[in-house]
């Protein structure tokens, strides 16, 4: 299991601004190790953000997204105290879900 995500959800005006920092290697599959063998690709493919059971953002990523990916977006309809949940799945089937409270 990978390390937890850092999620920050804050009100900005009447919208909720969500910032997420994930902990993932995001190996491209292009690099080689010291013996010349290709390091297999290992990267996040799907990211889904939900608020009150409603999807507020979904993303598909390729290996070109940076190591320890960062993402931010804004959505309307959220209130302080409610929860935002983020889930990612990588190409090896690993999965992680974390939650944050809107402040």
């Amino acid at each position: 299991m990978a390390d937890p995500m850092k999620i920050r959800a804050t009100m900005s005006g009447d919208k909720v601004e969500v910032k997420v920092l994930m902990s993932h290697d995001m190996e491209t599959g292009q690099r080689k190790d010291s013996k010349g063998a290709v390091i297999p690709a290992h990267f996040i493919q799907h990211v889904t953000a939900t608020h009150n059971g409603k999807v507020v953002l979904s993303a598909q990523w390729g290996p070109a997204v940076s190591k320890n990916p960062f993402m931010s977006f804004k959505f309307s309809g959220g209130k302080p105290g409610e929860k935002v949940s983020i889930t990612w799945t990588d190409n090896k089937g690993d999965k992680r879900t974390d939650e944050a409270t809107i402040s």
């Binding site: 953002l57 993303a59 977006f73």
Partner: peptide
């Protein structure tokens, strides 16, 4: 999309109604 990368497409975000049409992320070039 990063044209000179081995594969052009880096990330794709689906924006449902109610979410701002703006995203921030970091990619490799």
């Amino acid at each position: 999309l990063v044209e000179q990368n081995p594969n052009a497409l880096a990330a794709s975000f689906d924006i449902p109604a109610g979410t701002d049409a703006g995203v921030t992320t970091r990619v490799k070039m």
